[in-house]
Amino acid sequence: MFYPNSPQTSPQLTQIPYGQQYAMMQRQIQQPYHPFATTEPQARLYPYHYQGPIQQEQGGFITQQSTAASPQYVQMRVTPVDQSIMSGYPNQTANGSSSSSFNYNIHPQQQQQQQQQQQQLRHHAMPVGSVPLQDDRYRKQLIVNYLAPDVTSTDLHELFSRFGELDGARIIYDKQTNMSKGYGFVYFCHAEDAKEAVERMSGYEFHGKWLKVGYSTNPLNIVPSNSSPYVHAGSRGAAG
C-alpha cells in the first residue's frame, strides 16, 4: 500500500523548493479562506456584503464582478436614472436638479381664491374633541361614552347635575331594538360647569363602566337656548 506522503511516492527534499517541504498533501497545500485577509477597505468593513468592485458596462447597466450573493443577503441591482424623465418638472436647472418651490404660472386672482378656499376649509374642519370658538353652545354640550346598558337618562342627569344647572341629558337608544347604544349627551347651562365635568368625570366608574367624557361637536345635538329642557323620564321611549 502506498500513501500520498510515503517515501516511495514523495520526491527528495532537495528537489522541493524551500517553504513547501512540509506541504505535501493536497489539504495542506490548499490555503484556508480568510474573509478579512484583503487589501480593499470595503471588504474589511463589510465582509458579507462586499463582492468586489463595481464596473460600468456598455448599455448603462451596473453589474458586479463577483458571483451571486448568499441567500441570506439580498443584493440590489441599481440602474442609472434617465434624465429625460425629470425634464417635465418646473424650475429645473441645466444640471438636472430642481428647486423646492414650484411655479405653475397661476393667475394671481386664482391663487388668492385657492388660498381663501383653504382658509375656509381649515375654519370649518374641526378635529374630534375640539371646541370651536365662534359658538358658545359647543362648550356646553358633552358626550358621555361607555355607558352601561342599564343607565337611563334620569341617572345621567343626576350624575352630572352636581356640577351645575343642566339644560338636559339623554341616552341614545336603538330604534329597532330599543336598547341603549352605550353613549349619551349632557347639556349644561354654563360653559364653566361643562369644563369642570369634563375634567372630573373622564375615567369615572359608573355602573361598572369607566366613562369617557368630552365635548360634543355635532351641531345636530345642540340644544337651542330658547327651547324647553328635555324630559328626564326613566322610560326608554321618552328618553330616546
Rank of each mutant, 00 (worst) to 15 (best):
S97V: 06
Y33F: 07
S228N: 05
D136P: 01
P219F: 06
K209R: 06
L211K: 10
Q176V: 00
S97E: 15
Y146L: 10
Q31P: 14
H49V: 05
V151D: 04
N218V: 09
L220I: 14
Q116A: 14
V81T: 06
H190Y: 14
G214R: 12
Q75H: 13
G182H: 07
Y73D: 07
G237W: 00
V144E: 13
S87D: 15
I222P: 11
Y48Q: 05
R44Q: 03
V151P: 11
K175W: 14
A148T: 04
Y104M: 12
I106L: 10
G168V: 02
G237T: 06
I171V: 03
A169P: 13
P41R: 03
E57H: 13
Y46D: 01
G208R: 06
S130T: 07
Q30F: 00
G164Q: 11
G240F: 15
V198S: 05
N226K: 05
V231F: 08
S130R: 08
N103C: 13
M201R: 01
S235G: 07
Q65I: 13
L166D: 12
Y204R: 09
K175L: 08
P80S: 03
S87P: 12
M86H: 04
Q112M: 02
A37P: 06
R162G: 08
F160Y: 03
Q42N: 13
H157R: 04
W210E: 01
G203N: 15
G203E: 01
R162F: 12
V74L: 04
Q109L: 09
S70C: 08
F61P: 12
Q117P: 06
Q176H: 13
S225G: 12
G19I: 15
Q176S: 05
P71F: 14
Q116T: 10
V78L: 12
S99W: 08
R170W: 07
E57D: 15
I172D: 10
K195N: 14
S10G: 09
A23S: 12
G164N: 04
P32A: 14
G214V: 05
D174P: 05
P32R: 01
A23Y: 08
N105D: 06
T154E: 01
A191V: 07
K209N: 09
P53F: 15
Q109R: 03
P4Q: 03
K181D: 01
T217A: 04
G234I: 05
Y146C: 02
Q118K: 03
Q75N: 14
N145S: 05
Q20S: 07
S153N: 04
V213S: 09
T67L: 08
P11L: 12
T9Q: 01
P35L: 11
S101W: 14
Q110Y: 00
N103A: 09
L13Y: 13
T63I: 11
R139F: 08
T14A: 07
A23Q: 04
L156V: 13
F188H: 02
S161M: 14
Q56N: 03
H124G: 07
Q111C: 01
T38V: 00
S87G: 07
S70Q: 14
Q110K: 11
V74C: 15
P219Q: 03
P80V: 15
S180N: 11
G52K: 01
H123M: 15
N5D: 11
Q176Y: 10
Q72K: 02
P90M: 01
N5V: 12
D193T: 13
E165T: 11
I54S: 09
Y204I: 06
Y215H: 06
Q134A: 07
Q12T: 10
G96A: 02
G184V: 10
G234E: 04
Y3W: 15
S216H: 12
Q55W: 15
G52M: 00
G237N: 13
Y48T: 07
D167Y: 07
I171Y: 13
Q12D: 10
Y89L: 10
A191L: 03
Q28K: 07
L147E: 07
A169T: 11
L121E: 10
F206T: 01
I143M: 07
F2G: 14
M126C: 12
A169I: 03
R236Q: 03
Q20C: 10
P7G: 08
Y215T: 06
E57Y: 10
G96T: 03
G203K: 03
A125H: 07
L220P: 03
Q65N: 03
P47A: 11
A94G: 08
K195A: 03
S99T: 10
N91Y: 08
V186N: 13
A23N: 02
S216I: 09
P32W: 15
A169F: 13
T152Y: 03
V131T: 10
H124N: 09
V144Q: 04
P11D: 06
S84P: 13
Y22L: 12
F163Y: 15
S100I: 15
I62M: 15
V128E: 01
E192Y: 14
